[in-house]
Simulated assay, not measured.
Amino acid sequence: MAIQKGKDLLVKVADGAGGFVTVAGLKSRSFSINSEPVDVTHSESAGRWRELLAGAGAKKASVAGAGVFRDEASDALMRGLAFDGAIADFQIVVPDFGRIQGPFQITGLEFKGDHAGEVAYDLALESAGALSFTAI
């Protein structure tokens, strides 16, 4: 995989009409996939090294982003999801890797502004169900 531009890592939200709209104004974003380990170490584990049970722990994905408001429609959609505590389909596009899609909930929406600067926001999403992956 060649070096990719950070601006091409996209966070998209379902627009209610069967498509996805890019969450506008994000200047930074990150995506992580994690799973909880299930420790099955016992007194006869080789050298007392920890043993984990494959495929047993809960999996989750997290998305974080920060940016400025740029698009009324996507801003209103994200604001509504945050205030309602709703779960919506999101799509994370990782260039030359793939698309991760599924239900996410906005778990954090923070606004900030400096006296001589723009109003900015921080966004946090957590997966709320099974995710699918499509290679690009």
Rank of each mutant, 00 (worst) to 15 (best):
H42Q: 08
A116R: 10
I33G: 09
A58G: 09
Q91C: 10
G80H: 08
G85A: 10
D71A: 00
V94G: 05
L77C: 06
G65M: 08
L9K: 05
F69E: 08
S127Y: 01
H42V: 10
E72Q: 14
G19I: 09
S35E: 14
S132I: 05
D122R: 01
A82D: 11
G57Y: 04
E51P: 06
D75R: 12
A82K: 04
S43V: 06
G108K: 01
S45C: 09
E110A: 15
T22K: 14
L10M: 11
G57V: 06
T134W: 01
A56T: 00
V93M: 00
K112G: 15
L9C: 00
N34G: 15
H42S: 11
D71Y: 08
L53H: 03
G55W: 06
S74P: 11
E44Q: 08
A76Y: 10
T134R: 03
K27L: 14
G102N: 07
R29D: 11
F111K: 03
S35T: 12
L109C: 00
V119Y: 13
F133V: 05
P37E: 01
S35I: 12
G6D: 04
S32L: 08
I100Q: 01
A130G: 05
L131C: 09
V23G: 03
L125R: 12
K59G: 04
R99G: 01
Q91F: 03
A54K: 02
F83L: 14
A76E: 11
L26R: 04
A56P: 08
K112R: 15
V63N: 00
D114W: 07
L77Y: 04
K7Q: 08
A124F: 00
Q91M: 10
V11I: 12
K59Y: 01
E51L: 13
S28A: 13
V23S: 04
A17N: 09
R79F: 14
G25F: 07
D96W: 09
E126H: 00
G55S: 07
A82W: 05
A82G: 00
G67R: 05
A14I: 12
L10N: 03
M78F: 09
Q4F: 06
P103I: 01
F97E: 14
D84R: 14
G65V: 10
K5G: 08
V94C: 04
L131V: 09
G18P: 05
A76M: 09
V93N: 04
